[in-house]
């Protein structure tokens, strides 16, 4: 496309005209201030049709919905988590901290039928460190670690940015640990007994 220089117009009437067109522009916006943009999703028919009126929303009360497949705050459905530690391993910024305790009894299955064998006394995600890469959600074998469409979760104290997903209280966790230790002891004792028995049989 050929470009031509914009000729700069000066002269009294041109100035008056441009002043007038400036005023009429702001005036027309002022008149259309009765209309307001409605908070609807981008796929809505109306989304691109709202050319006039106020474009801002009263944010905490209204917000334009965000796409589902975006990168927002993580959520772990701890009931479905098998505590496999994959997410913690893949995380590029090491913001997931998992501590696991083996279960002594049967603790059921996840909703997709995978057997759960571990308790998670600690399952912390530090959202302040998270870079929202989404790798953890990809590797999660039971799809329990997902991103939710929540993006407004700033905190006054940075400590509150660490989210705790465990469903065990510290006492319960301690109890599970002791149960596991006891079972280990019993197994060790049983083993030792079996070994002794085998020896004496010889």
């Amino acid at each position: 496309m050929e470009r031509t220089a914009v000729k700069h117009k000066t002269g009294f009437w041109d100035v008056v005209k441009s002043l007038g067109s400036g005023l009429s522009l702001t005036w027309s916006h002022f008149l259309k201030a009765g209309n307001r943009r409605t908070p609807e999703y981008v796929s809505d028919e109306n989304y691109f049709k709202q050319k006039d009126g106020l474009v801002t929303l009263k944010y905490p009360y209204e917000a334009i919905p965000v796409p589902d497949n975006g990168r927002y705050r993580l959520h772990n459905e701890i009931d479905d988590c098998i505590v496999c530690d994959l997410c913690a391993k893949v995380c590029p910024v090491n913001c997931i901290t998992i501590e696991s305790v083996k279960a002594t009894e049967d603790i059921g299955t996840t909703s997709d039928g995978t057997k759960k064998r571990l308790y998670a006394p600690t399952f912390d995600i530090d959202m302040a460190k998270c870079c929202y890469c989404g790798l953890c959600t990809t590797v999660c074998p039971t799809d329990c670690l997902t991103m939710t469409p929540v993006y407004d979760f700033s905190e006054v104290d940075i400590k509150n940015m660490v989210y705790h997903f465990t469903d065990l209280t510290p006492e319960q966790a301690e109890e599970k640990k002791q149960m596991f230790a006891k079972q280990q002891e019993e197994m060790a004792a049983a083993k030792a007994a079996a070994l002794a028995a085998r020896k004496s049989n010889k």
């Binding site: 916006h29 002022f30 201030a33 009126g53 106020l54």
Partner: peptide, 13 residues
């Protein structure tokens, strides 16, 4: 308010 309306904002609410 006038400033906000002319700039397609809402001003104090």
């Amino acid at each position: 308010k006038v400033a906000a309306f002319m700039q397609d904002r809402m001003g104090p609410t």
